[in-house]
Each structure stands twice: as C-alpha cells, then as structure tokens.
Design a protein around this nucleic acid. Structure first.
Lengths: 343, 343
DNA sequence: TACAGCTTTGGAAGCCCTTCCAAAAATGTG
DNA sequence: CACATTTTTGGAAGGGCTTCCAAAGCTGTA
C-alpha cells in the first residue's frame, strides 16, 4: 500500500493548520487564493487521497445508495439498473448492490443496508418487501424508494400496468379480433392483477364480454409465473380448447410469450397468421422474435428513482410521491398489424 | 433517524468499559460468559447498530469489493455478476458496482475505487484497462482481479476462447461440413483474435485450408463488433458470394448469430437446413433461437473471481494466477446435428 | 497467608476527517 | 495612527470504533 498521506502531512509540508487544509480540499470559501494554490500543489505532490470512511464518519453521511434487486431476472432490471447507476455516478454517489436470489434474503440485506450510517438511501426493486421489514424501514426514517412495486408509505416508481394491458388489448381489438384471450401470471403478483384488470376493462369498454375461460395461468410459479414455461403451459392449455380457442392473446410478459409461441409452433400454428400475440415488457428477446409488446421506459425509471431518492434525502418531509410510467405500444409482427397494413 | 446508540451507551448501561463492549461485539475470547451475556442483552435492548464507517476506519479495512463492469451488454455479465454477488454476500462483504458505458469512464471509476481505504479489492470485467490505469493499480498494491481479460500483472479468470472456437469448428467439421466460414468481431478485441485462431487451427488440424475470404467482420463496431448488426452485415456480405458462400459458420458470439440468422432468413435461407451455425456465449436468447453454441460457465467464473480475490487479500504475495475455463458445446438445432441424428 | 501467574477489564490512543470557536491577520474608517 | 470590522487561520473537539497496555481480579500453590 502506498504510504498513507493524511491532511496532517499536507499541513506540515505546506506550513498551515489542518483546518486550512480541510477547507481547501472542500472548497470552503474562506481561504486566500495563494493559500489554496499552495495547499493544492502540496496535496498533488504528495499524492494525497482522502480517506473515504474518515470523511463519511466525520460528515455523517455515506454518499452511498444501495439497491436491493432480484437477480434472477432479465433485461428489465439491467436496464433500470443502468439508469440508476448512470444517475448515481453523475451525482458522485456509490452504489452498493444486493442481489436477491431468494425472497428470504430480502430481510438480511435490508438489515445490512440499515446499519447505522451505512447508506443514505435504499431502493427496492420489484419486490414484495415483507411487512416486518417495511415497519423497520419506516422507523429508521431512511429515504426509501420502491421501483416497480407500491406501498403507501414510500415513494414509488412503477408502470401503469392496467393502462398498458388496456392498450395492448385494445390494439388487438382494433385489428378486428373479438375473441381475445389472456395468458396471465400468478395472481399473488400485483402487476399480474393489474394487467388482468386492464385487459378486462378493454374488452368491456369495447362491448366484448369477459370470461374466465379466456384467461389462463401456467402451473410453473417461478418468478410468480412470469417465466417461459408458464407461458408454454398456458398456451398448451388454450390449444386443447380446439376450435373454441381464441385467436388473439394478450400475454402478461414477453418471456411468457416466448413459451406461448413455442407451444403454438409445436402445434402447427403460425404467428401472426393463425394466432396474434401482444406481450408486455419489451425485453431484448422481443425484438428478435418480432413480438409486438408494451415497452416500459426502464432506463428513465431508474434515473427517476434516484432523482426522487436524492430529493427525499434533501427534504425528508416531502410529500410521498407515486409515479407511474405509461408503457408504449411497440408494434412488431406478432400482432399481425404489419401484415394487414401491407395488404 | 432512530437515536444513535454507541458502545459508550452500552458500556454505561451494562456497567462495563467500552473495551469490554467492543470485545464482546467482536467475539474476542477474553470475556467471561456472564459479561458477554449481559452485554449482548443490553446491546439488543438498546437496539445497537455498529457504525460501519467507524469500524472500517478503526479496523483499517473496508469489507468492500468493487466491480467495474461494462453495462451495455447482456446476459454474460449478469450471470458472472450473479456469481460474484453470491460469493461476496456469503463472505459478508459489500459490492460496490461501477457500470461503464463508455471506455473513458474506466479511469474515473478506477480512481474512485482507489481512494485510500475505500475497497479491499477490485474486479475488472471484460475490459481493456488503459495502461495508465494498470500502472496505478500496480502501484497501489491493491488486490485486483481481471475477469474475461488478461494481463501478466494481475490474477485473471477467462474463457479458453481458442479452445472453444476450436470445438465449435470441429463440431461443424464432424457434421460433414468442409466449407466453413467465420463471422468474427473486431480484431482489437483479444477474444475475437483468440477465437479466430481456434477456428483456424481446427480447420488446419482437420486438413482443411484456411482462407481470409471465409472470415468476415461486420462494419458496426459497437462493443467491438460483438453486436447484432455486425452479424447481420457480415452474413449479408457472405450471401453476396452466391454459390461460393460457405454453408456452415462459426460465429464469434450469439448476438452476432442472431443478426446472421435474420440476414439468412431474409434471403430465403433456412437454418439449419441450408446453413448451419454455431455461436459462442450461450446467452439467454440462444436457447429460444435453438442456437448451438459454446457455453461459458459464467456463474462459476464470478464465484471463482471473488474467491481468488479474497485469497489474494489474505496473501498478497501469492503467485499470480491465470485461470481459464473451458466452454462447453451446447448442441441445439442451428448446427443441424439434431436433424441428422433424427434421420 | 503470601505471592506468582493467569484472566478479565478499563480506557487512552489512534484511525482520519470535518467543524466550530477563538485568535491572528488584514482591511477599512475617521 | 488607533480602532472597529472583516477575513483568514489554527487546532481542539467530535464522529464511533478497535486495540494495546496497564491495572485489577482470580486461581492455585507452598
């Protein structure tokens, strides 16, 4: 380890007191230009590096933010995380990452992040934070932000799930479909529930009737049913209906749509000629699979999450803010719209 | 903020000196069981939380590792990062993440990570660390690990690129192909170069001749050419050869293979019936696209990277270790092997 | 009972900063 | 030039912990 140079060394070398050194280093105004110049020169010469933790201890703030994020998943998190990291580094904060593989880890990570003085704020991604933890978070009074989930007590950034599902379904209706099914995820998941509502409302607003028959959920409950196999199973289920089967589907996530497409292909159905699909998320795969889907503005969500958190740090009494982003319809081939237009 | 409880509070409340409290909290042996019990009871009652930064300052170590990782990319990093995070949290360290979007950011992040005392070690992912930075890293004497890149001065974990390319190409040869092309990435990238060598060696060892004609690189240089468009362009280029075009390809990354497949499809070629492909990486997409590819043991690479780093922290004079993992051939449909087998 | 040799305990010093207060220096004013 | 102001500076105190050394408390032995 290179010799450790402290402000005392600089003080001695430059012939000033440590207070002055500290002031120069922190751009405090009451220092003459000559003094400043001299101190900076010496600091540079000695290759001074402030000790982060001594600063944090003395300043009583950590300049770090931690993010608790479910790792299992895909593109969505990476994109949001990119936004988060982008903004964080712009602000000069550090990002401490806790990747959750099992829901039970959440509590442990929360405790670690909660260690006194450790972080200035915490972001929780797409997770049901256990009530017990929520209460503790509340008590600590630490700025907390929720991304892709909602709780009345904390700021949150999320996607207008119902609205997106509505748009997706409406798009299918506009394309002339009347019998539209939905492949959903487990109803323990709030987004799944909301997307179901959006789907249902779209049908009803357009004079179509809603029936449970047309909503299926795969058996595989991994990630609350937002997984490829669940999509495959649900579609297989639909296919068993024979000629009764809907010919258009709103699928509550792209990854499930992938499974659904596989099931369709294996059974001789072509997309979009025989069956039309609209997904949700716009993961990277979607583009390659030419899947029409609802895109979530992931990067911006990340950026906003940090902006919000920092705003709350600055002003803890700020009113709690819930922001929902509207997903955008990305029309590709799976819905059949392009084919029709070409004709 | 909940009232801050310090060891002084515990000391007063429990009727001991602060030294004893600290000893109990750190499991130091010379404390009687009764004392220990009493102190723990009080600490719990007061809901004591140690102040992380005070500890780090006093202990002279940070219990933090930082990872500098190119964010732009995909699955590969996420997987490796999962491994890293898994091991890190098992060891009780914190992970500070620096996501690089532009190569020029590397230096800045390195400086931040290098702040005196800030981290106990740094991991660099898949990047050409600028020489200037390398020199500084060397000087600081901080444990450094390289993942998916190599430098004589630091421990590294990488994939046997040449070996993988060899296996991929050999697989195609075994399937009876004689005219095998390669879609490569920019040759500034070490992995690209190594994969080219492996491809070439495989041809030559099997008595096939190597020709530059059969190696193409797309124009798009994003991510050193490891991107979808570059794959598309390279394949389009090949297609222009007409009947001279190879009917089997080793593609240096899955993402390029995606572009290549698109180009093929648009020109009426079917995969694998008309053209066989083998990729490299085994990103998530590969499975969905039924792409035969070389899988890198990403998670394990992450785990090992941390183990290695921690080992070096414990023993800085350890000899420098370079580990290469061998990729495994994952046979799916794009190479045509399954079709043949079915016959 | 006296004393050597352990074990346990207390707390000062040290880790490296920031910040506050008082003192010193510079400046302005009549 | 004397004095009041303002600007600049020095450094103690404080942030909360670990660790080391000395002191106190025990134990066992003769």
């Amino acid at each position: 380890m290179a010799k450790k140079v402290t402000i005392y060394d600089i003080a001695r070398e430059a012939g000033f007191g440590i207070g002055t050194i500290s002031r120069v280093l922190n751009d405090h105004p009451s220092v003459t230009p000559e003094t400043r110049k001299k101190v900076i020169e010496v600091a540079k010469r000695l290759n001074y590096q402030p000790h982060t933790y001594a600063q944090r201890l003395a300043r009583r703030q950590s300049e770090t933010i931690s993010a608790v994020i479910p790792f299992f998943t895909n593109y969505f998190f990476i994109e949001v995380l990119r936004g988060v990291q982008d903004k964080i580094s712009e602000l000069g904060y550090d990002l401490v990452l806790y990747g959750v593989e099992h829901p039970d880890q959440v509590e442990g990570y929360a405790s670690r992040a909660l260690q006194r003085g450790k972080v200035d704020g915490i972001l929780f991604f797409s997770m049901k934070v256990p009530d017990k933890v929520l209460v503790r978070l509340k008590e600590t009074n630490l700025p907390i932000g929720l991304v892709d989930s909602v709780s009345p007590d904390f700021d949150s950034i999320s996607v207008a799930n119902a609205e997106g599902a509505y748009a997706a379904t409406a798009h299918l209706i506009e394309l002339g479909h009347r019998r539209i099914g939905m492949i959903n995820a487990q109803s323990v998941s709030a987004p799944a529930l909301e997307r179901l509502q959006g789907y249902r409302r779209a049908l009803e607003r357009h004079g179509l009737s809603f029936t449970d028959e047309f909503v299926r959920i795969g058996r595989n409950t991994k990630q609350d049913g937002f997984n490829r196999d669940a999509g495959y199973e649900a579609m297989t289920d639909f296919i068993k209906m024979g000629s009764e089967m809907p010919k258009a589907f709103f699928v509550s996530s792209d990854i499930q749509a992938m499974g659904a497409i596989a099931a369709l292909n294996e059974n001789g159905f072509r997309v979009p000629e025989d069956v039309a699909l609209v997904g949700f998320d716009d993961i990277e795969l979607a583009r390659h699979m030419r899947l029409t889907t609802m895109r979530q503005p992931m990067f911006q969500m990340g950026v906003l999450a940090i902006e919000r958190l920092v705003a709350r740090m600055a002003n803890p009494d700020m009113e709690i803010l819930h922001t929902t982003f509207s997903p955008t319809l990305i029309v590709r081939e799976s819905c059949g719209a392009l084919i029709r237009n070409q004709n």
